[in-house]
């Protein structure tokens, strides 16, 4: 009887398709995401899933930093803002095509974040969280007071639609496809990063920085690399936000959004890509559930109270998962799956 999966070779450890079934599962997920859902889902669900996808991109990026490199960022909303404004301004002012603007925006977000990374990652400890908190406030101030950058009233920048095959990004299907194609690329990148030397070096630095340094793995270098990648992906999620909403304004990228990203990866599961996506779905759907469920039980909330309630619930979610299930929803899922794999003889 099967008692579990045991790796005998290193290649088995890092294999993407650990079991033959995994290949089928991945193909099935891709087919459902890119063929079934766009054909079947109602426009309402396409919109909701698009929001989940945008959040999942940002959460996957943040998980590289928190889950793999063991550092906290409170400034991912700020880096998303840098990405969104860079691409928006490049397209609207310099008439750059999107395939130039989007990579430039990612690099801009990554390079901008390095200022804060270089200041704080040279020493041991969680100083990055402090430096990125400063980044968050500095970016919010720049957006609100340097109107010559952001341009015009409340810093609104318009995003020109992109065409994807027969769809363009003014339609729900086009937005959905743009976001989920991007998410697929990001997931593939991060999955492969973790199978590479760099990814393993990040985990080594997280778990035992002294031992890592002793094995010629420079902690500063890999913490900075994780932070750069993570912020660039955050910038990408800012760009997607812009294409989805059609414009960005200064009030979107607040500290609350940064905390929301942290809530996503903690709820979903630190250091796990499916976890990031599950967490992004949970945190994005929470306001929707609240809006639908609370009136059903006879509680009517005004819009401002709802915002405060959500702020509180995100904190409660982080705390509950930290205490009760540190491996997040994905860990919970794995536990249940392992239980039933050997049922009724599980031990």
């Amino acid at each position: 009887m099967e008692t579990g999966r045991f790796h005998e070779k290193y290649a088995e450890e890092i294999a993407v398709y650990g079991t033959p079934y995994r290949r089928i599962w991945i193909l099935a997920v891709l087919a459902v995401t890119f063929v079934v859902v766009p054909l079947v889902a109602s426009p309402y669900w396409l919109v909701v899933l698009t929001l989940v996808g945008i959040a999942a991109v940002g959460a996957t990026g943040l998980n590289v930093l928190v889950g793999y490199a063991g550092q906290i960022s409170l400034g991912h909303a700020a880096f998303a803002a840098v990405g969104a404004y860079t691409s928006g301004l490049l397209v609207s002012r310099a008439d750059a095509p999107f395939w130039v603007a989007i990579p430039t925006a990612m690099v801009a977000a990554g390079v901008f974040s390095l200022i804060f990374g270089l200041a704080s990652l040279r020493v041991k400890g969680l100083y990055l969280a402090i430096a990125t908190l400063a980044a968050q406030y500095i970016v919010q101030w720049i957006l609100s007071s340097w109107t010559w950058i952001t341009g015009g009233f409340q810093g609104i920048v318009i995003f020109e639609p992109i065409e994807i095959g027969p769809f363009d990004t003014t339609t729900p299907t086009g937005k959905y496809l743009l976001v989920f194609i991007t998410l697929a690329v990001v997931v593939m990148f991060v999955e492969n990063l973790m199978r590479s030397r760099s990814g393993r070096a990040m985990i080594a630095v997280r778990d035992q920085d002294i031992a890592a340094a002793g094995s010629a793995v420079s902690p500063l270098r890999y913490k900075l690399l994780a932070f750069f990648i993570s912020s660039a992906i955050a910038g990408l999620s800012g760009v997607l936000y812009g294409y989805n909403a059609g414009l960005v304004s200064t009030e979107v990228f607040t500290l609350a959004l940064s905390v929301q990203y942290l809530a996503m990866i903690l709820v979903g599961g630190l250091g796990s890509i499916p976890g990031s996506i599950l967490g992004a779905a949970f945190i994005t759907m929470l306001p929707i559930w609240l809006r639908d469920l609370l009136p059903a039980v006879g509680i009517e909330l005004s819009a401002s109270v709802e915002v405060h309630l959500l702020t509180m619930l995100f904190g409660v979610a982080i705390l509950l998962f930290l205490v009760l299930e540190p491996r997040g929803l994905y860990g919970l899922f794995r536990n249940i799956k392992d239980y039933f794999r050997m049922w009724p003889f599980s031990y």
């Binding site: 906290i72 942290l262 702020t311 982080i318 930290l322 540190p326």
Partner: peptide, 28 residues
């Protein structure tokens, strides 16, 4: 206290969560 044997990352994350809870609770 429930996190007292966890890593510093978990403790700091808990204080961030507490901040968010109080930020929401006070105006409510």
């Amino acid at each position: 206290r429930p996190l007292q044997n966890e890593s510093m990352l978990a403790l700091v994350m808990a204080t961030i969560a507490l901040g968010s809870i109080i930020r929401g609770l006070v105006p409510m």
